Each structure stands twice: as C-alpha cells, then as structure tokens.
Simulated scan of single mutants.
Amino acid sequence: MTALGLLYPGHSAEDDYPRIEQLLGSDIRVDVVHIDPGGTEAGERLAARVAELRLAGADAVVWACTGGFGYDWEGAQQQVRALARAAGLPASATSFGFVHAARELGVRRVAVGTACPDDVAALFADFLRAGGLEVTGVRCSGGVTAAEAGTWGEEEVLTLARAADVSGAEAVVLPDTALHTAAHLSLLERALSKPVLTANQVTVWEGLRLADRRVNAPALGTLFSREPLVQA
C-alpha cells in the first residue's frame, strides 16, 4: 500500500481525490487534510496539520496549492523543505508538480488557463518559467472565486482549456486546485489533441513520484498513460 498525504486549502474540489484514487485502481490511498486557505506559508499552519498525515501512515506529503505565489522559485523550495522537515517525509507542492510533470512528458512549451486573477496568474507563469518552461500564453477567466470555480462542470472547464490553448503549446496547464477536472481529463485531451495537466491530477502524480510509484491509469490523461521519461 502506498499512502499519499495531501494538504488541501479550503473546500472546493477535494472530491476529485477519491475519484482519482478509484481511477488509479491500485493499492494507493489518498488522504486529504484541509487547511485554512488564507496565506501560503508552510510554517506553523501547515506543520500543525501534517502530523495527521504522518500518523495516518503517509509515504509522501504534497501541499495542494498553486494559487498564492508570494514566493519566487527559491522561496517556494524553502517552503517545501520546511514542510518536509515538519512531516519527516518527502514533500512537494502542486506548483513544483507541474514543472516535474511537464518534464516527464518531454514538453517545454505550455499554455495556462486559470480562474485566478491576472496578477496571480502572472506569478504562476513566472514560476513555470523559473522551472525552465516556456509559457506561450495565459488565459484568465476574470478572477472567479475558488467557491465559484468549484461549481464548474465539464462545459466550463472545457471552455477554459480551449480558450487557453494557443498555437505552439505542447500542453495546456489548468493550475486551479478548486476546479473539478478528474472526470474530464479524457475529454479535454481529445478536444485539444495534446496533454492537459490539471492541478488535482498533478498533485496526486507528484505524490506518487515522491513515493517512487508509477501507475498506468489512462482515464487520468497522458501523464498517467506512458512510460516515464524522467526517473523519480
């Protein structure tokens, strides 16, 4: 059994995770602990909750957040290192998961579609660039709240992905953990004819990467459907 511990901000699309767990169809457990979405620091607020995941037997911990980028690349690394020390386990964040996932697929040019405000989206694009990716474009939906994004269905998510996709992009990135996307990945990739990386999908994949697990689950998109190009 491989157990993943996820720290999830607020309550929006956390029901994606049991769906992903089911689609993995393997001996993998995904445990979710909720955390106050205010701020992004990895200090006492994250450390206070990570004990629950450690006691539950987690093999790795992922901070399921891409929305608040008060940190540059190095600052985000410090945040994750602090989380790893508090957990006593391998740790990462969804933001780093996107960079690692793109490398895994061998893609460098990505387009971003997000429900976040323009300023937050710009910070996320800068983060991807710091990770060595080329951002071909950023499409924002006008600053929808996490609660509103959590109500979006297949049509709204597909509209966002199509609007984000631009010529030259090798993959489309949807970085909002508030979006339900687990049930729509096959449709998104068929519609765009390219890999689509979504926050909750990538969060689980990043946890599996930390735990040195590879699982073939085509319903979860190209990321879960091919041999890894990068070793864990």
Rank of each mutant, 00 (worst) to 15 (best):
A3E: 12
L7C: 05
L7M: 04
P9A: 05
P9T: 06
Y17D: 01
E21F: 08
Q22S: 09
L23S: 04
L23P: 00
L23Y: 02
D31Q: 11
V33G: 02
V33S: 03
H34F: 05
G38A: 15
G38H: 15
G38D: 14
T40S: 14
A47N: 11
V50F: 02
R54F: 08
R54G: 15
A56T: 04
A56F: 02
A58K: 09
A58S: 11
V61K: 07
V61W: 14
V62D: 06
W63G: 08
W63S: 14
A64V: 15
T66W: 11
W73C: 01
W73G: 04
Q77A: 11
Q79A: 15
R81N: 07
A84M: 05
A87H: 06
A87T: 05
L89C: 00
L89M: 03
L89P: 07
P90I: 00
A91Q: 03
A93N: 14
F96R: 01
F96V: 05
F96E: 03
F96L: 04
G97F: 05
R103F: 01
G106K: 10
R109A: 11
V110M: 01
V112M: 02
T114E: 11
A115E: 00
A115G: 11
D119V: 14
V120W: 01
L123W: 13
R129Y: 02
G131K: 07
E134F: 10
V135E: 04
T136G: 07
V138W: 12
S141A: 10
G143I: 04
G143C: 06
V144C: 00
A146W: 14
A147D: 03
A147F: 12
A149T: 10
T151A: 11
W152C: 04
W152T: 04
E156I: 00
V157Y: 02
A161L: 09
R162D: 02
A163C: 07
S167G: 14
S167L: 13
E170Q: 15
D176R: 08
A178G: 07
L179H: 11
T181A: 15
A183G: 05
A183P: 02
H184T: 13
L187K: 10
L188C: 00
R190C: 10
A191S: 10
S193R: 15
L197M: 13
T198V: 10
A199V: 06
V202G: 08
V202Y: 06
E206R: 05
R209S: 09
R209T: 09
D212E: 15
D212T: 15
R214A: 13
N216I: 12
A217P: 09
A219M: 11
T222K: 15
L223N: 13
F224R: 04
S225K: 04
L229C: 02
